[in-house]
């Protein structure tokens, strides 16, 4: 890139390199964030708000994220499960997950594994409770209910 100076009659060119660097960094940031949202969260879920919900400071070492839509569909690892179609399916999948954690990370880690439950505000209690019971039947003992932090 050349910079004309003085009265030499050279071609003036703006230095675009810092601008390009900045724009590429912004693109990279938005790409990473978009990917993160896609992996972990179901966009259909509208969480309720709770003042006393503790902000998440650190992620649980071992966790499984379970989303429950307002229709009662369970979104688990990019799969949508319909309870009415096969009531035992959720327990089977959760049980497989529990066994996988036991095998890969050890028994202690499996016992401390947390199920993170993100349910839509309009979901009825029975649809949330049956997921809790399925998790318990699969061997999990800890659950986190997710809510938006606020008043």
């Amino acid at each position: 890139m050349s910079h004309g100076a003085g009265g030499g009659g050279g071609v003036e060119e703006p230095n675009l390199t810092p601008l390009l660097d900045l724009v590429l960094q912004l693109v990279m940031f938005f790409m990473l964030v978009a990917n993160f949202i896609q992996q972990d969260f179901s966009a259909e879920i509208r969480l309720p708000t709770a003042v006393s919900a503790k902000p998440i400071t650190a992620r649980e070492p071992t966790f499984i994220l379970v989303n429950v839509t307002s229709q009662g569909e369970v979104v688990l690892e990019n799969r949508t499960l319909k309870y009415e179609k096969d009531p035992a399916q959720i327990t089977t999948i959760m049980s497989d997950q529990y066994k996988r954690i036991q095998r890969v990370e050890g028994k202690d880690r499996a016992e401390q594994a947390t199920v993170i439950l993100r349910a839509d505000a309009a979901t009825s209690f029975d649809k949330v409770y049956r997921v809790m019971k399925a998790c318990k039947a699969a061997g999990f003992s800890k659950v986190q209910l997710r809510a938006k932090v606020g008043g």
Partner: peptide, 16 residues
């Protein structure tokens, strides 16, 4: 297309 995720909080429980 950026849709920022709201700040989430947790209520920890032990399963039944």
């Amino acid at each position: 297309t950026f849709n920022p995720v709201p700040v989430e909080g947790q209520i920890s429980m032990k399963l039944p």
